[in-house]
């Protein structure tokens, strides 16, 4: 992979075709991986000696939390690329990341609460991880709402790109201040899902689930980005020939 081939990805026709071609592969492989991971997590892995079977929720919580954060970083990186090179591809990617990332954040919150209810007795304790996740949801919502409320597309792209960049700079600060605040409040909570040493039969389903979720994210992202690119490029000949086929040329 040299620099030139990366640069070529910035061309809308190539990227569109890539999205269309790769999307089913992402989808199929992610469904397979998630099925295997779910089987391993729900049936194969032994119950945790402390938390019993409730620990199995981590097979759904950790992957979605991971993807929600990765999606934000991905969105911010696309935003930087978009602002620097005024690339429609990068802006489409950033815009498509937001709703997907928000839904994964929502999942992480819900599964976190479902885990917290039997463990702590209440669905919501102000655990550092959950609180940062909630703030992440707000950042996603701000991004989506800002995009919706600016009618001019290129203006909305650039304004939200700035917001995404500011957000990604702030996320570590927010996270660590919440952690710090949390440690002062509650001396000891079992807030860490993953213990430092984890049995192999507990670990492999988790790794597979994370991989599956990441590929699923890639599948959603390709689909949405393809749609977004199609809207933006609908005047171009390459898209019209791709969609209508050769009739158009005849």
């Amino acid at each position: 992979m040299n620099l030139k081939s990366i640069y070529k990805l910035g061309s809308p026709p190539l990227f569109y075709k890539l999205c269309i071609v790769l999307e089913p592969w992402y989808l199929i492989s992610s469904i397979l991986l998630i099925a295997v991971g779910m089987y391993g997590g729900l049936f194969v892995a032994p119950p945790d000696y402390q938390m019993g079977d409730a620990f199995r929720i981590i097979y759904f919580h950790v992957p979605s939390a991971y993807v929600s954060m990765m999606a934000y970083v991905f969105m911010a990186v696309s935003a930087i690329i978009g602002l620097t090179w005024r690339s429609n591809v990068a802006f489409s990617l950033a815009k498509s990341c937001a709703p997907i990332g928000a839904s994964f954040t929502f999942l992480a919150l819900i599964t976190g609460m479902l885990w917290g209810k039997p463990m702590w007795g209440t669905a919501w304790v102000w655990d550092a991880r959950l609180t940062s996740e909630l703030i992440l949801l707000f950042l996603y919502l701000a991004y989506i709402m800002l995009h919706l409320s600016i009618p001019d597309r290129s203006k909305a792209d650039r304004a939200t790109a700035l917001l995404a960049i500011v957000g990604v700079v702030n996320i570590p600060i927010i996270h660590y201040s919440v952690v710090w605040w949390n440690t002062l409040h509650q001396a000891s909570t079992i807030s860490k899902f993953a213990k430092p040493s984890i049995a192999t039969e507990m670990l492999w389903p988790l790794v597979i689930m994370i991989l599956g979720y990441t590929l699923l994210f890639a599948a959603f992202l390709s689909k949405r980005t393809a749609a977004e690119l199609a809207v933006r490029e609908k005047r171009t000949r390459w898209l019209q020939t791709l969609i209508v086929g050769d009739k158009n040329n005849a």
Binding site: L42, D53, A54, R56, F60, L107, L114, W115
Partner: peptide, 19 residues
């Protein structure tokens, strides 16, 4: 699920539904 069925299967279902 050792008494945690609601929570475990609830998160499975909601994950699948959202995805």
């Amino acid at each position: 699920m050792g008494g945690y069925g609601f929570y475990v299967w609830g998160s499975v279902l909601i994950s699948i539904a959202v995805l």
